[in-house]
Design a binder for these strands. Sequence first.
DNA 1: GACCAGGAACCGA
DNA 2: TCGGTTCATGGT
Length: 274
Amino acid sequence: MIYLTQNFNDIHTFECGQCFRWNPCGDGGYIGVAGGRVCRVFDGKVYCPDSDNGFWESYFALDEDYDSIKSELEKRDPELKKCIEYGGGIRILHQDLWETIISFIISANNNIPRIKKIIETLCRTFGDRIESEEPAGEFYSFPTADKISALDISDLGCLRAGYRDKYIADAAAKVSSGEVSLGAIPEMSTPDAKRELMKIKGVGGKVADCILLFSCGRYETFPKDVWIKRVVTELYGISEAQIDGFINDKYGNLAGFAQQYLYFWARDNKIGTK
DNA sequence: GACCAGGAACCGA
DNA sequence: TCGGTTCATGGT
């Protein structure tokens, strides 16, 4: 077991759109799968085998100091204060790179409930059953690139992912062959890493930013989706073309955290949809 | 039945 | 480089 006592709220962290394999388990807690492991989060505690403590400490990025991140962001942008207070329990996770690539390929022009459904089907169909102490349900690992690359693309039809099938297949082929080297990405500069990821079909600028932010700790990235475009228009009155320069000046190396507070606040309150 | 969803590929200028 | 179109699917 590990403790998530400060700057953590399960709803904020699991429902802010960065992850897709955490679900409420009825008693007020969440059950999730990551790295071939299952755990339950309840009341700020992560229930897992002791041998997995190190894995989850890394996953939840317990070394990040959110007190200073938040105070620095409020200093740089007082307007952000209400968003930080609203989603104050968000932690940006350190998710598996391959899983995050596929998850955000699926996210393109899609909605979150359906993204989760497609990913769950992908894991149940092509992943491995995980032995777990949890009584509620069966749990499956995220299938590897090698596993998916060995399939025929028609096998992906069961996912109901539509035109994204060919993108999933392309990602698996390029990662499995080493044409896109996942091991090299953590060593690259962020612009180089982004270009490397965009060699995969279905990975454009926004998806690459999500991958780098949610699995590689590149906190200077600022993914721009429909909600972010709405909320920056609402709060700052700037156009889409102005976002990058504006955000970089305002938030710098903390842009990714600001992005999550803005996104969660905007989506939960349906900002800009009238 | 039109519209939308944590967009990207593709096309023509 | 830039703006418009198309793309599968399922929910509202």
